[in-house]
Amino acid sequence: MRALVIDDSRAMRRIVSSILTGFGYEVRDAGHGGEALDVLNEGWVPDLATIDWNMPVMDGLQFVSAVRANPAWRSMTMMMVTSESEHTQIVRALAAGAHEYVIKPFTADAIRDKLALLGLLPQEVVL
């Protein structure tokens, strides 16, 4: 499975990428929503995108809306991974088309549980 990790912090991209690689994902990353759209436009469409909210150039919510506007990317699952923890913000993200929401700080187990809920945990990790 493929994952695209979108966060303006290189340190956070490393942390999330390391967790997903441990679950068997092939991972690419992007520093903001615009870079992530470039990856998708190359034809590299992942099964999962993890998306920070507050980023320069194009924020996470704008990215989610852009993805939802393109039927070719409908199969991609979008999980917000962000320090935005207000209920209203979570509702906004889900209404825009995000499937799941993880609040920073998180643990590898929290990501694992969300992926299991989404059916995106490889079988060998589930067992």
């Binding site: 912090s9 320090s83 209203t88 609040i103």
Partner: peptide, 21 residues
């Protein structure tokens, strides 16, 4: 990048316990 991200995460959690938006 890294030291800033720690502030971002701590700040986000502080924001979460404060009232209002």
């Amino acid at each position: 990048d890294a030291f800033g991200e720690i502030a971002n995460v701590v700040g986000g959690s502080v924001k979460a316990v404060l009232p209002g938006h």
